[in-house]
Design a protein around this nucleic acid. Structure first.
Lengths: 352, 352
DNA sequence: CTGTTAGCGCATTCAA
DNA sequence: TTGAATGCGCTAACAG
């Protein structure tokens, strides 16, 4: 079996608790340098690793945080998870990853199940606030820290720690850019999780364009699921129905949808960007390797992960919960990155 | 605090151990139906979940398996992890995911660190056998089950449980197809992990083509890292050097490399498939959404994950280690899937 | 520095 | 069925 603390102590010729003291919190240790060295060497030799089970039982914590992502197949979340994992690992925390598979119901299940574990904190992407309120209450009651990744100001509104990402500047810039290029007809492709409704997104989108003088009839709102195939099909159907009245510019709510949509266009001999300009969201790496590299609204993933880790560690280190009342939050902005999928709209064909 | 077993027992008006007996192994329980019902209800009402820490300590196992993948950004591994997680979760096992980031050294670290946990089994993708031999020994000594995902016959050779995937038929078919189309000059793009050498891959590749009458001078072997950018750069450099003598057909060791290479071609006005045929490996979804959908050699991911889960559960349920000596393995074959990136080679230009 | 004691939550054994 | 007792590996408090 594995070496236990007791074995280390014996080998070093000290008492078990002395070994424990030395191996953990040096400050209060009265041991001589020599003894310390002996203990460390014994631990090293035996390949001693504290039992996480015993530690968890004794300390009531596993030094573990849970991360729930909506979709492991979306590079954005995979990358975020990767970044966060590195940061937390540096702080000696483990990361448990749950994939809710873009299913709001299953997401609930993940939230509940992760709460049932000996976990110190939960990080999750806020998809639908109302659905999460009860979870937040439970989590707080259970003494778990929670950090939500969310849109702007939701954190403040609901009083939980949050890393906020504001897309508005990015989206506004995207629209401005398309308008400047001369586009008149727009489409918005929105990927929805299973069980999620479009909410007020269509209105927001219409309002945004109306403010710039684009009449509502020139705007289309299309929804799809979170996979490539669904985006292709939804946008393809839309193109087929729209015929010649089709938009010349598309903003997709994420790059995955954008890629699906571009393929739908391609299969209909609609060229990107000559016939159709496309802007995605997320700026995932593969977007740079398409036939035309994908213009996109980029999330500052590294910063988001760092901010999340910072908040997490602040909370985790604050054992007294002194700052219990305060809500921690950091805010970031998404940024438009122009590449090759945006161009002037094609010259209008004369009506036959 | 959370409800403990003791609380459940109290609420149900039974002894703690009675509650334990009822909640766990029904067969040996002598309790009346009524008592049982009361216990279950109490557990339900209190939202009782056994403490994993206590369970881990008592039982010496966390009902958890570890999966080490080379790259969370490669959809193939993400998908495999997802499939395996579902299967293991059904069997009430948790899955811990480690990402070795295509770094052989870090992979070692992952293997070691995962062994140090209270984990029942480890699943990993075999990249380099020699490096893993010591790990395998240690794992066996520690009583961990190990399942390796590997090439053909490696499992038998090294006597550990394995799910084997044989690419040879797929690769042979790919070469045959390209030869039939009339291709004469080939390139092989091989993504290598950090710290990994090409090994005997170039020879195998040359041999394969030589057998079909392709002289060695018409074959190029190019290596790159596991990311899109590296593939693009490596293949781009190669194209620049090759000039007009460039190959008309490319087999990339994975789709990520293929996508990078295609973009490199695109940036040099080399059309795919008109000027260059490309076949990848993995058949990842995004390949279907490129400008020309990517022909590829597909891994049967669902089957691989299922087989892995089957072996895992067989071992895990075999507490007596009766079949200790036997090596379990399952073998699968990769399959060529033709799409749009393969075509006849361009007509040869007359030399100036 | 040491040795002892106690307890985290649970399964298990044994005597009632 | 029950109640009591034991121990998994570890930390922490205490008197020496």
């Amino acid at each position: 079996m594995r070496a236990r603390l007791k074995d280390v102590a014996e080998k070093a010729g000290v008492a078990t608790n002395t070994a424990s003291t030395i191996l953990n919190r040096r400050p209060n240790s009265w041991a001589s340098k020599e003894t310390e060295a002996r203990v460390f060497k014994a631990a090293e030799d035996l390949g001693y690793r504290p039992s996480r089970a015993a530690l968890g039982l004794r300390l009531g914590s596993f030094h573990t945080i849970g991360l729930i992502i909506p979709d492991i197949h979306n590079p954005v979340y995979a990358t975020f998870a990767d970044f966060l994992e590195i940061r937390m690992r540096d702080a000696n925390y483990d990361l448990i990853l749950e994939n809710s598979r873009n299913d709001l119901e299953y997401e609930q299940h993940c939230l509940e199940s992760i709460l049932e574990r000996q976990i110190d904190a939960v990080v999750y992407f806020v998809s639908d606030h109302d659905r999460h309120l009860e979870f937040l209450k439970k989590a707080k009651k259970a003494g778990k820290r929670v950090v939500g990744l969310t849109g702007p100001s939701d954190g403040k509104k609901f009083a939980f720690d949050a890393v906020e990402l504001d897309f508005s500047k990015g989206v506004t810039d995207a629209v401005s850019h398309l308008l400047e290029l001369g586009h008149k007809r727009f489409a918005f492709l929105c990927a929805l999780a299973k069980g999620q409704s479009a909410g007020d997104r269509p209105e927001l989108y219409n309002k945004l364009l109306k403010k710039r003088g684009v009449p509502e009839k020139n705007n289309s709102f299309i929804s799809c699921s979170h996979d490539l195939q669904s985006a292709k099909e939804s946008f393809g159907d839309f193109l087929d129905k729209a015929g010649d009245a089709r938009p010349t510019a598309l903003i997709a709510m994420n790059d995955i949808s954008a890629i699906g949509a571009i393929r739908a266009a391609r299969e209909r001999n609609i060229r990107v960007p000559e016939d159709l300009s496309v802007i995605g969201v997320d700026n995932i790496p593969v977007g740079n390797f398409l036939h035309s590299s994908l213009s996109s609204i980029a999330q500052p993933l590294q910063e988001l992960a760092d901010a999340t880790a910072d908040i997490l560690l602040t909370r985790l280190n604050d054992k007294d919960k002194a700052s219990k009342a305060k809500t921690l939050s950091r805010k970031f902005h998404a940024k438009l990155v122009l590449k090759e999928t945006t161009a002037k709209p094609p010259p209008r064909k004369k009506k036959a």
